[in-house]
Design a protein around this nucleic acid. Structure first.
Lengths: 354, 354
DNA sequence: TGGCGTCGTGTTGACGTAAACATGGTGACC
DNA sequence: GGTCACCATGTTTACGTCAACACGACGCCA
């Protein structure tokens, strides 16, 4: 039930720390509220003398427009909601930062919810919570394990998502997972490796699936044997575990990791096992996190253009907000924007040992 | 000028994708808006029969309460603002994540602004943007180079900050920088190093100053010579530059870096110079970023308890919000909460070479 | 000089909600 | 059986802002 949740306001109500309003400024300046409103909005049909009086009064009282009242008038909050999963991890914060910045350029602010789990019910609850707050649209970042069928979103709320499970349901913007994984794998094959091992993300994650698939396809296309993949959970710790197993196998000369954090774990495991990188084993990551270039050796990785993704997410969302149309059906092709990625070759990859 | 920025609303205005209101539901259910309001708020002084009629009408129309109107009535959005500097960097996202989570537990959501520069005017502008009725309180995370004198904040807005430059002006919660830097330095001295070099953060950053001071004090207290410090800008790249200089000096056997990212840069520079860590040179960082344990070698560092900091920031802020009092003066001691840090000894530190 | 546009400013009303107050009906108690 | 308390519900009003309209003053041109 959307509307049944009681909202307790007593404490806040008791405070009433309301600031000065148009009326207060108007009284002080000796003009009408409408004139103050005009000055506040920067309209030019106010005499300079009057304007100055009003500005002085505003400054004296510390006036700032009341967003709630404006939102009520306009039916718009100029705010977008963002649901992110484990903000501090991986590319999450990069994307959020880009979304925040893109929104700012458009005059929108961002309200953020961080969910511990990307499952449908948790994301649904977060969306409902946000919709009760003041938002005009919603950006869902990597609701990896949520499916469109089970995700209950408020009606009439524009939505964009940053991964591709929702293609055909909501507009999506995402990095070209497939091309990234393919070129990472191909890079290692081109260096002369017989095959490439893969440390994958969790099986229920769509990006993890796409990357694993592209890795497999690249191997098959090259006629290379396809080793069993090792599944991690995106964390460096899981990469370390995977790395220990891979390090024990002298056949392993090339590892493609589904993200940089797991790659860092693999690197540590290889170091501990005394296997040289890239001399004995080459390693490639995905994401280009800030520290990727300062791991040892500096990590070859697939760089996602987070800024571009954030910008396009916001653009796509505001397009819906402004048109008043929710793109919840229509041509699936149109709904999915793919942002190119680029392979950053650093020093963790080399030809296999002779 | 606080209120002068014109706000364009035409496009949004034209859309008017307004949902059903109390009045619509009331008309359909054949009751007054007030009764609908009571049902919507979950009050119990409504006859079950009437309630059911209203609930049915709500469901039929897909009614959801209008947040703007509620906020206007109450003078509160149940939202707190967070100003962060370079969200994707360092411990920033960890703190933001903790603040978001703590706010959620209290029934508040978080509106986020990410500023590119921590200077006074930029932060002031951000605060103004967030200001007043749109948020009930403001958390400023590391306004490192802003000073209380030049930082113009909206009046009557509860504020907490996460570093200590504002002690005596706003309540602050922060990690125990001094103890962290001291124990990091002492740890290296205890291992037998003659002295400890320091890669500092930018000179205008308060945490950087505190860490550098504590490092110096620890050396002086131990009767060790105090080498010239090397200044970085928190980035791994600057740490790398600093590391190249330090690596060239055979006298250097121990380096304390003001954050983990610069430590990562130093590690890379030492590796490239062929100096073993920790065999030839020991390195300590600060922050315990997610990858710290998976650098090579795993980095000894000072862990900040970001969760605790975030929780206390929110608690402190809501205390002000609820009491309606702004703690902008009073006992400076009371205004500054220090959260303990802990030294995590991993494998990047060892006794100096014989 | 009279009519008419234009410009600066004031007045009214509406956005959706909920508190405060008003009303009318029911039952209890003396 | 009359008074009173109480309960469910309706009516009024205010929150702050801004669009729409109203209005008076001035200047322009016929």
């Amino acid at each position: 039930m959307r509307a049944g949740a009681p909202v307790r306001h007593e404490e806040v109500d008791a405070v009433e720390g309301r600031g000065p309003s148009l009326a207060d400024v108007a009284a002080l300046a000796g003009v009408s509220t409408q004139t103050v409103s005009r000055v506040s909005m920067g309209l030019d049909n106010v005499r300079p003398v009057t304007r100055d009086k009003v500005l002085a009064a505003m400054a004296q009282l510390g006036y700032a427009p009341n967003t709630a009242a404006r939102a009520l008038r306009y039916g718009s909050f100029r705010t977008i909601g963002v649901i992110a999963h484990r903000l501090a991890r991986t590319g999450e914060s990069r994307t959020v930062e880009a979304v925040v910045e893109a929104a700012r350029r458009e005059g929108y602010t961002v309200t953020l919810i961080d969910v511990e789990s990307p499952s449908s019910d948790v994301v649904s609850a977060a969306a409902t919570r946000l919709s009760h707050q003041a938002i005009d649209g919603l950006v869902i970042i990597r609701a990896e394990t949520a499916t469109p069928d089970t995700l209950a979103l408020p009606p009439r709320l524009p939505v964009v998502v940053s991964d591709s499970r929702f293609v055909g349901h909501h507009p999506a913007v995402g990095a070209d997972q497939t091309d990234g994984a393919r070129s990472a794998t191909q890079h290692l094959l081109d260096l002369g490796h017989r095959t490439v091992h893969h440390v994958a993300g969790p099986a229920d994650s769509i990006p993890a699936q796409l990357r694993a698939e592209a890795w497999r396809d690249a191997l098959v296309a090259a006629g290379s044997p396809v080793p069993e993949l090792v599944e991690g959970d995106w964390t460096a710790a899981s990469g370390y575990d995977a790395g220990r197993r891979l390090a024990a196998d002298p056949e392993v000369t090339a590892v493609f990791c589904a993200n940089d954090e797991m790659a860092a774990g693999v690197l540590r495991a290889l170091h501990e096992a005394g296997r040289a990188v890239p001399g004995d084993v080459s390693v490639v990551g995905f994401d280009d996190v800030l520290l990727a270039g300062y791991l040892w050796p500096p990590l070859t990785t697939v760089a996602q253009d987070f800024d571009e993704i954030g910008t396009r997410l916001v653009a796509r969302l505001l397009q819906q907000v402004r048109s008043g149309e929710i793109e919840d059906d229509g041509d699936a092709e149109d709904l999915h924007e793919v942002v190119p990625v680029s392979l950053l070759v650093r020093q963790s990859t080399a030809p296999p040992p002779a």
